[in-house]
Design a protein around this nucleic acid. Structure first.
Length: 497
RNA sequence: GCUCUAUUCGUCUAGGGGACUAGGACGUGUCCCUCUCAAGGACAAAACACGGGUUCGAAUCCCGUAUGGAGCACCA
């Protein structure tokens, strides 16, 4: 085989935002192109005017760019094979549909949709496989002329061989054989002059010089149609790879943008790329996670950079089986990236807008200071708000007395502890209000008051942070400083008075 | 219903005739660490869908069955 330039494409329909199944398809196509140093193309398949949703294209490109899946050619990126939007290529499809007609590879079908429906119903009643009965395939020249003269509308259908077999080769699953007598004379050009997927897809892949057609598994059943079309045109076929489908986390049914899917525990399953972004997942973690579904790095590593994945990616080793979406592994992966792969600065940069969106005013110095305290403790960027949002509250939201009093302690005991704490921490010079010193005093309180660490540190935590789950107590006090810390302890004392 | 396709721990996966007492990861459980929550460390439970072949030998090859998934539109 001659070594052509590798050109792959992602060809979504602009029917709404990009969902996670689309991301996976795009990602694998992109990896294939990047691995070979080839080109990755974005093509918009908008041949169904009814399903077009305004703004979809931008939603799709936004999602791709968030993830870092960049394309070399596309609607907004000329590359010499455009236009990259199918509705702008209509004359091309019409020309080649006519060519098929002229060469007896296709025929005009004048059947109404009502008749088509009726045929199907009858077939269904007879328990036969449904499909078109090929009535117009055998129309005489005169009949065709008459229909045209009558101004009847028509579709163009592919003339599929009635017997024999069509054999396809799929990079992921090997040889796939179809009996031609199970195939349909599919419509390739609609009455409105628009092509269907089958026609547009083959013509575009040919003229855009696509070397590898990577698409979702659901296309495998129509592969023979496409192969027949390629042969009808006499064009050199690309290589095909049908990617396995992403199933819901419970393993039932595919992840789809059309359903509101739920987990076994009733949690909503995120299906749109943007929902993952909004939920605080990092694009790097997302990509790393997705690459591990249906493909593996080759050794036992699961955490690696996208560069490393590109180097090793091989479409031939993709696992042909569908897989459930292992969402809990994404949570873990996101945590790994937050605590091990991002610098403190980088993390802070990404956390800042999240705090701001929560209505908090972010002091950047303070944000940087708390990085070491939070990064081991959050799995999603959004977790920062609950864990450490209190660092940026304009006014202190004090705890309730119930939160303050630990189990196995009473109000008087807790107050006594706070009183003692106030006295001792007051005695610390401001410049020495540091974690190690604060801890030493805390430990002193433990032994002097015959309490345990958990009681003393816990009461101080609640007093100072206003919450029972937080960053570590003394580190937090150091960051707040002496004045603020004492002020808060005093508030707690008053609450128990 | 018909066609295609797939099937290894709960989940993502490794494996492609002998290296399998089936490996890793997430999750789960127990223990350690511990001021909360995490993180970290240690250990554990947990799978070749089933039935027939082929073979000296099968998770691996073949055939059936079962189950999952997809497709069967003038949607992609």
């Amino acid at each position: 085989m001659t070594q052509k330039t590798v050109r792959t494409r992602f060809a979504p329909s602009p029917t709404g935002p990009l969902h996670i199944g689309g991301v996976r398809t795009a990602l694998f196509s992109w990896l294939l192109a990047r691995h070979h140093g080839g080109k990755f193309i974005l093509r918009i398949e908008d041949t169904d005017q009814k399903r077009f949703v305004e703004g979809s294209i931008e939603l799709i490109t936004d999602a791709l760019s968030w993830l870092g899946i960049d394309y070399d050619e596309g609607p907004d990126k000329a590359g010499g094979f455009g236009p990259y939007v199918q509705s702008e290529r209509l004359p091309l499809y019409q020309k080649w549909a006519q060519w098929l007609l002229d060469n007896d590879k296709a025929y005009r079908c004048f059947c109404s949709s009502e008749r088509l429906e009726q045929v199907n119903n009858e077939k269904k009643a007879r328990k036969e496989p449904h499909g078109y009965d090929r009535l117009c395939r055998t129309l005489s020249k005169e009949e065709i002329e008459q229909n045209l003269a009558d101004g009847k509308t028509f579709t163009i259908r592919l003339k599929v061989p009635l017997d024999g077999q069509t054999v396809g080769h799929d990079l992921i699953r090997g040889e796939v054989v179809f009996d031609n007598n199970t195939l349909q004379d599919a419509v390739i050009l609609k009455t409105d002059g628009f092509p269907t997927y089958h026609l547009a897809n083959v013509i575009d892949d040919h003229f855009m010089e696509i070397s590898h057609v990577t698409r979702a598994n659901e296309w495998l059943p129509s592969l023979p149609l496409h192969l027949i079309l390629w042969d009808a045109f006499g064009w050199e076929k690309p290589l095909y790879a049908h990617l396995p489908v992403l199933l819901n986390p419970n393993g039932q049914g595919k992840m789809s943008k059309r359903f509101e899917a739920f987990n076994a525990d009733g949690k909503k399953i995120l299906v749109l790329a943007k929902e993952y972004k909004d939920a605080g997942y990092l694009p790097e973690a997302m990509l790393n996670f997705m690459v591990n579904i249906g493909w593996n790095f080759g050794d036992e590593r699961e955490v690696f950079t996208i560069q490393e994945a590109i180097e090793r990616f091989d479409i031939n080793t993709v696992n042909p089986a569908n897989s459930a979406f292992p969402i809990e592994k994404l949570d873990w992966m996101n945590g790994v990236y937050i605590r091990e792969k991002l610098s403190m600065d980088d993390l802070a940069k990404r956390l800042r807008p999240i705090l701001e969106n929560a209505g908090l005013e972010v002091n950047v110095d303070r944000l940087l200071k708390i990085m070491p305290l939070v990064r081991e403790r959050i799995k999603s960027l959004n977790d920062i708000v609950d864990l450490a949002g209190f660092f940026f509250h304009e006014t202190f939201a004090p705890p309730t007395p119930e939160m303050l009093i630990p189990k196995k302690m009473d109000k008087a005991g807790t107050k006594a502890l706070l009183d003692a704490s106030y006295d001792r921490y007051s005695a610390v010079p401001e410049a020495e209000f540091l974690t190690a010193n604060l801890l030493a005093i805390g430990t002193g309180l433990v032994s002097d008051l015959s309490l345990n660490n958990s009681q003393v540190f816990g009461v101080l935590r609640v007093a100072v942070t206003g919450q029972s789950i937080s960053t570590p107590t003394f580190e937090t006090m150091e960051i707040f400083g002496k004045e603020e810390s004492l002020k808060r302890i005093k508030i707690a004392i008053d609450l128990l008075a």
